[in-house]
Nucleic acid binder design. Structure first.
Length: 669
DNA sequence: CTGGTGAATCTC
DNA sequence: AGATTCACCAGC
């Protein structure tokens, strides 16, 4: 009897198993690495990717099953893509397959049906939106210099494009993209943006400027079909430009020649469920692996990026002037000291006056307040009772619209009690100010003004947010009140006043990144005013007017603010001078959560990292679950990574453990 | 002795 | 993750 030597393949699947699994090939069957295949796993069959081929398996023969169909209908994934997804999986302590397979589009990660070739054909012929050619403005001297530097770059070259609002970072991106696309007729570029719905203008701009090259978008709002079509276009090299949110960092781009990360400081780049990766960090890593330039743009760079630039690891390209209108000065930022100017219903007199002036001139105002609802809590003046969420360690927010108390953490809703639940007093009062209350105040203050409110509550319906913003653009709104949603991206041409009502909570935050984020938010809000070069004002209300953050903000001097923050971080041995991982546990009781973390700490292998004491999280209780955390910290990445690699098996082996989760480079502590 | 839940185990 | 098996106990 002749025995044909059978070959084996290693396959990654979307299962939390650290190692690829071995499968047997049929006699004479050959497979290319990077090919998709159907693999039996337990009682199921899953689509996996071949990551290795070998003569024999270490497993006993009976345990190795035969692989199912091997798919040759799509080009194999590149070795770079495999290496990159593997890096991401290792770095964030997940299985390779969990990262790689979930990065594939729906059509390619589910077992194909009988009509799959027709499905593929349809995806490949999906129409891309039409575009009309357009040319850009002549770059300024500063822009031209930055463009020249980026275009000269060879190999891995990380750049920080540090430019004030309106300095024309986008034109630098476009020129750099254009250069790479022209230099190589197959080249592809990846442009990452924080949120795709904020950038329809950018998309249109790309289509016009690079007409007729196809531009595809990738984000979670696409249908399965759209996502698959975009992914295939990128994978097969038809799409030359991919613009997408953080998930696009995992796109297969065989001819990738440049990566751009717009608003690189934006927290949307950090995934907060599943594999908690940072798309910005992975973009830099991917560029390094490929030996290509990566351009990180921001007016308020993250301190991680700022430090890399200061240390000379990234090259800084500075855009100090406004490109849109060289003569236009940025609006002054004024701090309204609430200890001097007493607020009436949350609005200080100078702010009320400025709003009235803008209205009288027929100009638009924007009022930013980072709290939705009417009042962040309800209180009984007689006994001191406060509306608390029964399931979370937080207060419930009064929503006047439907007279409910809502928990913004667990989503719990209850009717406002008619009287105090503890003493029966009927006088319950709202504490503090949310968007609904500010809207009410503004209507009182400016009876003639058309006031509109934009927050998650008013934009619940699909298009209502869009409609609201259209109304602002059309001049049908005088005063726009809202949360974060109004701060980002929108290019309102007629806003001459931007007001920030209450940021003091963020100054008193326990999170060491709060000042960095606050500065970015404030500058972003400030950037909404005076966009067409008209005289404009920016007013920020605070009780901490002496805080150094405001001094730097008024001078629009992010550099000295960032340097001061870095000095503090260095002295206190915090990121980016240290590297962290956060183990969080969720249990029915706090002692249980803390006990698990204490055991996890005790079970840690010999290490060179600092393991802090387990402590309750800032929001200790959420949706009826007690939460605690344990911080691991090291002075360098490598020892932290080595430690985590040894620690994770010990964690997984713990019997009866509560739900736990490990986050590498946590952004919120 | 069954059968029903929740934890433990295993997937090449 | 998802399916199966294991372990323990209420009920007859």
């Amino acid at each position: 009897m002749t025995e044909t030597a059978s070959a084996f393949i290693e396959v990654i699947l979307d299962v939390p198993i650290a190692q690829p699994l071995d499968y047997r090939l049929a006699a004479g069957q050959t497979v290319v690495i990077g090919t998709r295949c159907l693999a039996p796993i337990g009682r199921r069959r899953q689509v996996g990717v071949v990551v290795g081929v070998k003569d024999h398996s270490e497993l006993e023969a009976a345990r190795v099953r035969a692989v199912g169909d091997v798919y040759r209908d799509v080009d194999p994934l590149s070795t770079h893509w495999l290496a990159f997804t593997r890096f991401a999986a290792d770095y964030y302590q997940h299985a390779w397959g969990e990262v790689a397979i979930s990065a594939l589009p729906p059509a390619l990660r589910t077992p194909p049906g009988a009509r799959f070739s027709a499905v593929l054909a349809r995806l490949r012929s999906a129409a891309t939106p039409a575009s009309v050619p357009g040319v850009g403005p002549e770059p300024s001297r500063e822009q031209a210099e930055a463009i020249a530097v980026v275009n000269q770059a060879q190999g891995f070259a990380p750049f920080l494009l540090y430019g004030v609002t309106g300095s024309g970072k986008t034109e630098v991106y476009l020129a750099a993209i254009g250069h790479r696309l022209a230099a190589d007729p197959a080249a592809q570029v990846l442009l990452l943006v924080p949120e795709i719905n904020l950038t329809p203008q950018l998309e249109a701009l790309l289509r016009a400027r690079f007409h007729p090259l196809p531009v595809v978008t990738m984000h979670s709002g696409l249908t399965d079909g759209e996502r698959s079509a975009a992914w295939l276009a990128a994978h097969e090299g038809r799409a030359r430009i991919v613009v997408g949110t953080r998930l696009a960092v995992f796109a297969s781009l065989p001819q990738l020649a440049l990566i751009v990360v717009d608003e690189e400081h934006d927290t949307s780049y950090k995934a907060s469920d599943g594999v908690r990766y940072s798309a910005r960090d992975l973009a830099v890593k991917r560029a390094q692996m490929l030996g290509i330039p990566v351009l990180l743009g921001s007016a308020t760079p993250s301190l991680e990026t700022w430090q890399a630039a200061r240390a000379g690891r990234y090259r800084t390209l500075r855009l100090a002037e406004r490109a849109t209108d060289a003569a236009a000065a940025l609006p002054a930022i004024e701090i309204i000291d609430l200890r001097v100017h007493r607020a009436d219903r949350g609005v200080a007199p100078p702010v009320a006056a400025a709003l009235a002036t803008a209205l009288a001139r027929g100009e638009q105002s924007l009022v930013f307040i980072n709290r939705r609802g009417y009042a962040p809590a309800v209180a009984c003046e007689a006994c001191g009772w406060l509306s608390r969420c029964p399931n979370c360690s937080t207060y419930t927010v009064f929503h006047k619209v439907d007279r409910t108390l809502r928990c913004h953490h667990c989503g719990g809703v209850e009717a406002v009690p008619r009287q105090c639940p503890t003493c029966g007093n009927q006088q319950l009062i709202g504490i503090g100010h949310g968007t609904q209350r500010v809207e009410e105040t503004l209507r009182l203050l400016l009876p003639a003004a058309r006031v509109a409110r934009v927050d998650r509550d008013t934009t619940r319906g699909r298009s209502s947010g869009r409609d609201m913003f259209d109304a602002v653009h059309a001049g049908a709104v005088d005063v726009l009140v809202g949360t974060q949603m109004i701060a980002k991206g929108h290019d309102f041409q007629h806003v001459s006043l931007a007001v920030v009502l209450n940021v003091d909570g963020q100054l008193a935050s326990h999170d060491f990144r709060a000042p960095e984020r606050l500065y970015a938010t404030l500058l972003q809000v400030a950037g909404r005013a005076g966009r067409s070069g008209q005289p404009a004002r920016v007013l920020v209300q605070t009780r901490f007017a002496g805080h150094p953050l405001f001094a730097a903000l008024m001078r629009r001097d992010y550099a000295s603010f960032a340097d001061a923050q870095l000095a503090e971080r260095r002295a206190a041995r915090m990121p980016p001078f240290t590297y962290q991982a956060l183990l969080t546990a969720e249990a029915r009781t706090m002692p249980r959560a803390l006990e698990f973390l204490a055991q996890a700490r005790a079970a840690a292998p010999a290490h060179a990292v600092r393991l802090y004491d387990p402590v309750p999280m800032a929001l200790q209780r959420r949706a009826g679950v007690e939460r605690a955390q344990l911080l691991a910290e090291a002075d360098r990445r490598a020892p932290l990574q080595a430690f985590l690699k040894g620690w994770l098996p010990a964690l997984k082996a713990r019997r009866g453990a509560p739900r736990w989760h490990l986050e590498v480079d946590p952004q919120e502590i």
